[in-house]
Nucleic acid binder design. Structure first.
Lengths: 138, 138
DNA sequence: TATAAAACCTATAAAAAAGATAGGGTAATT
DNA sequence: AATTACCCTATCTTTTTTATAGGTTTTATA
């Protein structure tokens, strides 16, 4: 399951996507819309900004706005950013690889082989579905 | 990512699958092979037994053994048993459904719609890959 | 230029979940 | 009868997640 952080990130991105006509959106608008703590959401939006998905403007009249085209924001990117690895095991993660301590030889591990296949099929979905798909269905 | 519990379950099932020629396998054999705490593994094997995947025999000469054909043990079954939902959001889980508290109307939620698609594609993989696939690669 | 509004930053606390351990009870086999 | 190993429950520890707190910087505008 996704963490709340990631789920909230998707909600926020959806909200920002739906309000691309206006220059900026306040954290508070989003936090009220979904009943998310202002401060908690703040951290999430900051991460999305650092990742280059959102832009922001400080001061009065400021707020956040989407700088990427929704079709260029794959689900995989948001999940990796807030939740970490998409792979089901550390030993098959592309971005967060770690060997399994209990595994003597990864090359001979059948679980490893199968999980690589699972990872690739999951990635195929999560890299091709984007924020645009979410917005299309709203 | 899968929990250690689920990963250990897959290891144990693999071990049992590889030793189907012998009547029973001791918990200790598995825990030593993978360096898993005996007691921790005990709980895992118990759950697998309750789920009808393993059988056991008490007393001297006892132990665990696989009662299902490996090709009839899909990854999804093991994951659901030890880790819970496969879906990325509670509101799209088939086996562990819960509404999202922040969601006013699930029917109008684009995130919900997309995550249903993601779930179906993930399930397609996890229900078709089985213990047999792991054993084949060992 | 003062003020208010808003994002930005860092640290920490609280809660929940995962991981691990303990100790015994019960049943079956030799 | 003793041994062996499954079975069960409870508790403790650690890690992760979730949430909060308090201050700093930037910007618009009156």
């Amino acid at each position: 399951m996704l963490s709340k952080k990631t789920k909230y990130a998707f909600h926020a991105l959806t909200y920002l996507g739906k309000h691309r006509d206006q220059k900026t959106v306040l954290i508070q608008d989003i936090s009220e819309e979904y009943g998310i703590s202002h401060k908690f959401l703040e951290n999430i939006l900051l991460e999305l900004k650092k990742a280059g998905i959102l832009g922001s403007k400080k001061g009065k009249g400021g707020g956040y706005y989407l700088i990427k085209d929704p079709k260029d924001v794959p689900l995989s990117k948001v999940i990796r950013l807030l939740d970490g690895p998409i792979a089901l095991l550390p030993c098959v993660s592309l971005n967060y690889y770690e060997p399994c301590v209990e595994c003597k030889d990864e090359v001979k591990c059948g679980l490893n082989k199968v999980m690589i296949q699972v990872r690739d099929e999951m990635l195929n979905v999560l890299e091709n579905k984007t924020l645009a798909d979410i917005l299309d269905k709203e």
